[in-house]
Amino acid sequence: MKIVIIGGTGLIGTKLTAALRAAGHETVAASPNTGVNTLTGEGLADALAEATVVVDVSNSPSFADDAVLDFFTTSTTNLLAAEKEAGVRHHVALSVVGTDRLAESGYFRAKIAQEKLIRESGAPFTIVHATQFFEFVRSIADASTVDGVVRLSPASIQPMAGDDVATALARFTVEAPRNATVEIAGPEEFGLDELVRIGLASYGDTRDVVTDDDARYFGARLEGAILLPGDGSEVLTTRFREWLPRG
């Protein structure tokens, strides 16, 4: 089976490519670095030739509202059209738990638009909603730092390891299309502020993490369980404190 991974040289793409190749699949890691550009269409036809499945784990280089919306709508439109031309039989897309509840955020409005394009395309698909990755704890802290202080909501989150994301994605990739959204998450629940506080302490980062109910997350105000998966989600196994020495 030939599988093309869009965003295949990024964090999750690299892990997913390795997992699928280890399982014996022909895998193409596609990104601008390898000559495949979903925004311009460059290299798409060649990369998708004779592909059975396409997995989109790409992300926008800019999170500015207009730029991120353009990225996800343009790249997804180009990709779906190229897949139809190539006869691809399954489109898998990685997205985020809570996307449909976070429309206040420009980033999540763009993800909502991406998912709508996939659902309405007529192509067999599986959309995988994952919770936040352990690997992004420092990035969250950086984005939430003002005058040396990290301000974060205490909203609940159930984060997961990038390796677990790739493991689940690899399985969904080779299964039949769900034509639905599935959710995956880690095994533990934290407050977002608590998660980052633990992570920064383990890295020796001395920034104060202040709990702030009004702090924004990618531009959205968080409340309660907005970032948590629903009933029936698949729970993976890696725990944050066990992962930290590796992360």
Rank of each mutant, 00 (worst) to 15 (best):
T181H: 13
L200E: 08
P187A: 05
E189V: 15
V210G: 04
A180K: 07
F190L: 03
D208I: 09
A201F: 03
E194C: 01
S202V: 00
R207D: 08
E194G: 01
P187N: 10
A201I: 01
D208Y: 01
G204D: 03
E194V: 06
S202Q: 09
T181C: 12
L195C: 08
P187K: 12
R197W: 00
D205Q: 09
T206D: 11
I184A: 11
G199W: 01
G191T: 00
G199L: 05
P187S: 13
I198D: 06
R197M: 01
A180Q: 07
V196C: 06
G204L: 02
G199S: 13
V210L: 08
D193W: 02
G186K: 14
E188D: 15
I198C: 05
T181F: 07
D193R: 01
E194Y: 02
S202E: 08
A185Q: 07
D208H: 06
E189A: 12
V182Q: 05
G204S: 09
G186N: 13
G191N: 07
T206R: 06
R207T: 01
I184L: 11
E189Y: 11
Y203F: 15
D205S: 07
G186P: 13
I198E: 07
E188H: 10
R207P: 11
V209Q: 02
R197L: 02
L200H: 07
I184E: 13
